[in-house]
Design a protein around this nucleic acid. Structure first.
Lengths: 339, 339
DNA sequence: TGAATTGCAGAAAACGATTAAGCGTATTTT
DNA sequence: AAAATACGCTTAATCGTTTTCTGCAATTCA
């Protein structure tokens, strides 16, 4: 690979001059800069990022922590979309992204160690167990960090508005005439707490008393558990007329359980998902769901993280709340029973 | 961050000794090595990957080229699965992965330039326009490269067995009684050529004459185009009894077109997809499709690429062919017409 | 005209690691 | 006992950049 030394030789100037020309320093004449730039381009010169990183302590690399126990965030449609949007924005700003894991260099490193080892300029965290001590190490570390869908008080966070989202979704369901609404929610997390809190609050404001039987703790992205819990709901004496599931993907389990039970959606029972991924719109019936704005989530995360990286002085802890919107499908109908 | 110098100071030995101890060179006594290792661990030392890369020309970083024009490969379920599997295997071997693009360092670099700039040890290419000159530059470059689902004669390639896959799928359909089978295939590529070739060959061997009207050129992952072409097939005087689509995702368009036409699947017409992604198994009806072994594809790609990287002498060009299997859903029924 | 200022470029150190070469000391060989 | 070998560690060069400091020449100022 052609190095700065090769360019300097060809240009007849020192390596310092080449470096400064290429980085547009003010103490080099425009003529020289132009000449160096021309030769450098001709020779196909590109800086060696390792050498530059070594000297400047900046890699233009962003670490991405996107895993959950079950599988990599990559195959998780919602997070894949967020990541994709993040990636686009980051690349637009000259940053590359590298996945952070615990196996760097064949050694067993923590996420923080891996991040320092690779010298990433910042880290974005999502789709993960936020109580993991290794995640906390990163949170308390000195690298710029932005979290998605989870709030730490000393870190910038980009969150989907789960409170309004749940509320909007319930309003839609309420207007269809439902009063007996059940909720199978995901495992405990700040997202879950917001959704559950909003569920109780919204229904309370509507004057609906929520039976304890109607709220069940499931697991995100897990159709099997969802199927099992759905079955329990269907077997209740006073069956709900609508079930809200943890997310679109787990709806699959719910739908199957309902079909097995000999019921039709939405004639006999209504259901709603959460996320608004492509999958939700190709299921039969098309899901009524709350579509989260993955584009905005990913993009904001990148914008805020890069701001933190490039302006460490003004490092303000921010909360970006991204609203979603109800995607009306065909899975919520009007309840027929008169009571 | 604690550097090798800090460790050497604390250990009372030279930096060279520390380096050699940590890298287990033979000219350091076991006692010293042990001591150095212990102190290094205590101090939380990890090598600086940039410094190491600068000196050794090895980054333990693999470049990933996973884009297509429409969208990043990330949101493409099939490729997301392949990538995920690749990532798992790579990380197991101490490699990190970085996405290669054309925007590195805010400059406009080609893929090859970006790869050299980041100093990746090798590149895996998939889900892309393989005729792109920038891709060819990489193929003709000096970096280890493995391609997925495309064969270049001087490069190791991991390919899904599209010939056998199509043949198996058609055999399944044939056995259900279909003789009038149409194929909407994707845009031209080696994958497409294999599938189309196998389509003609297999049907030929079955003694079936394929009408030109039955083979249409569509676009992968594009439900709209698929819907349009499906409509054309449905309007034929002599309508096919079964349609094979470019992939599972584009089936959505086909299914909609068929429904709009007032037909039922599989009673009135049968359909088959290709890929076997999760989506295919949650559609209604469940798709009959050919499931590609994404786990094996990704894993093999990583294994072969790492072999090329770590053993440049024995760099053998290989062809790994990964078989898929028919996933029988409910979308292929028995044709009722007697003819 | 001499002094101060400015503009432009180079020399050299530094970033954190790896590694070839060198060098005592101890051991083995002859 | 002298020479050769082995061992264990250090010295120093090097990878490709960036950046501070220095210095020369031309310009401006008094």
């Amino acid at each position: 690979m052609v190095s700065i030394k090769d360019v300097s030789a060809k240009c007849g100037v020192s390596v310092a001059t080449v470096s400064k020309s290429l980085n547009d320093h003010s103490d080099i004449s425009e003529a020289t800069k132009e000449h160096v730039r021309k030769i450098a381009k001709e020779m196909g010169y590109f800086p060696n990022s390792s050498a530059r990183a070594l000297k400047t302590n900046r890699t233009y690399n962003i670490g991405v922590l996107f895993v959950d126990e079950a599988q990599s965030g990559l195959t998780h449609e919602y997070f894949a979309n967020v990541l994709d949007s993040f990636k686009v924005e980051a690349e637009k700003n000259g940053y590359d992204i590298t996945f952070i894991n615990k196996n760097a260099g064949r050694k067993n490193m923590t996420y923080y160690e891996h991040s320092k080892y690779r010298g990433v300029d910042g880290v974005v965290i999502a789709c993960i167990d936020f109580t993991d001590p290794d995640v906390m190490e990163l949170i308390h570390g000195e690298l710029p960090v932005v979290t998605i869908d989870h709030v730490f008080n000393n870190r910038t966070a980009i969150v989907s508005d789960n409170i309004k989202g749940m509320s909007d979704l319930l309003s839609y369901i309420y207007e269809k005439g439902h009063r007996k609404i059940a909720f199978i929610h995901g495992a405990d997390s700040s997202v879950t707490r917001n959704r559950v809190g909003s569920f109780y609050k919204t229904l309370g404001e509507m004057g609906i008393d929520v039976s304890d039987d109607y709220v069940k703790c499931g697991i995100y992205h897990d159709p099997d558990t969802t199927a099992k819990l759905t079955k329990e709901l269907l077997e209740l004496r006073d069956r709900p007329t609508c079930i809200v599931f943890p997310d679109d993907f787990s709806c699959i389990g719910g739908i199957n359980a309902i079909k097995e039970h000999g019921l039709n959606i939405p004639e006999d029972i209504s259901i709603a998902g959460y996320d608004g991924i492509v999958l939700s719109q190709v299921l039969d019936p098309k899901l009524t769901t709350l579509q989260q704005d993955t584009k905005a989530l990913g993009r904001s995360a990148a914008v805020k993280l890069i701001a933190l990286i490039e302006n460490p002085k003004a490092a303000i802890i921010e909360r970006v709340v991204v609203e979603g919107k109800v995607l009306p499908g065909n899975s919520v109908g009007c309840p027929k029973e008169k009571k």
